[in-house]
Design a protein around this nucleic acid. Structure first.
Length: 255
DNA sequence: ATGGTAGAAACTCTA
């Protein structure tokens, strides 16, 4: 089965690209972040016409997550249990024989901001929840935009980014705490090319200059790591007209 | 030295 994640930065704008990508790659599951759509405006019919069911939790202007899949889903959750948060950043469901959790982790803005504190608090609550999810689901995939580059290989200029939001030491420590729950970064289970990133700023020709970060991840439990055959980043959509600033990440699981 | 680009929405905020 093919499991993918993509921060689309507005599903309204990116819908044609998402439909094209679904047709070309036929993932069993595609998790989306930053849909920026209220549920009433979700393009259910277009997605359905493409052969996919859709589960979504959105809001106007900001955030919003969705899971598109070829089979129906059950046991869906739209929030971290017990963590009160009006921002729509979480979607979990049992789909295609595994538990899939789609996350849009807060960006954090800058390390001295309230939003950075919110990011760390949010991640602490997520980690406590994911421990419980993993105890109940040995086949667990936690995917999405984590807004954290785990280590120096994941940053085009680690010296310049040291201490900055997305690469600060506290965020990187939290990412390790997340893995310590019992998850593996599927991308690093395999040999990978240098300068493999999933996000490039729209500004300053960052994509062409390979000035990116790897902040979108597919984390998988040990049981899924056993059957993971590949994890790749598809940079092609980033080359399109009016692209998202993120590229999709795809994992192949033999199950 | 604090830009620059994009999206949504409303003349600003978030990333």
């Amino acid at each position: 089965m093919r499991l993918a994640t993509w921060n689309v930065n507005s599903l309204k704008v990116r819908l044609p690209q998402v439909l094209q990508w679904l047709a070309a790659h036929q993932p069993d599951v595609l998790c989306l972040q930053e849909t920026k759509l209220e549920d009433a405006n979700f393009p259910v019919r277009d997605i359905r016409a493409a052969g996919y069911h859709a589960l979504f939790s959105g809001q106007k202007t900001y955030n919003g997550v969705a899971i598109l899949c070829k089979t129906q889903v059950v046991d869906a959750l739209t929030a971290i249990p017990g963590f009160i948060d009006p921002q729509k950043r979480v979607l979990a469901a049992n789909v295609a024989g595994l538990r899939v959790i789609c996350l849009y982790v807060p960006n954090g803005q800058s390390v001295d901001s309230d939003k950075y504190r919110y990011k760390l608090d949010w991640l602490a609550a997520a980690i406590a929840w994911l421990k419980r999810e993993l105890a109940m689901n040995s086949r667990l995939a936690v995917v999405g935009d984590f807004n954290i580059a785990p280590d120096e290989r994941d940053v085009h200029d680690p010296k310049a980014w040291e201490g900055q939001v997305l690469f600060s030491a506290p965020e990187r420590r939290v990412f390790q705490d997340l893995l310590a729950v019992g998850l593996k970064d599927s991308f690093r289970l395999f040999d990978q090319p240098d300068q493999a990133y999933t996000w490039w700023d729209y500004r300053m020709n960052a994509f062409k200059r390979k000035m990116g970060l790897r902040i979108d991840h597919i984390l998988i439990s040990d049981d899924l790591a056993q059957c993971c055959r590949a994890c790749t980043i598809d940079v092609e959509p980033r080359k399109a007209e009016r692209p998202s600033d993120h590229a999709p990440v795809v994992a192949e699981l033999s199950m």
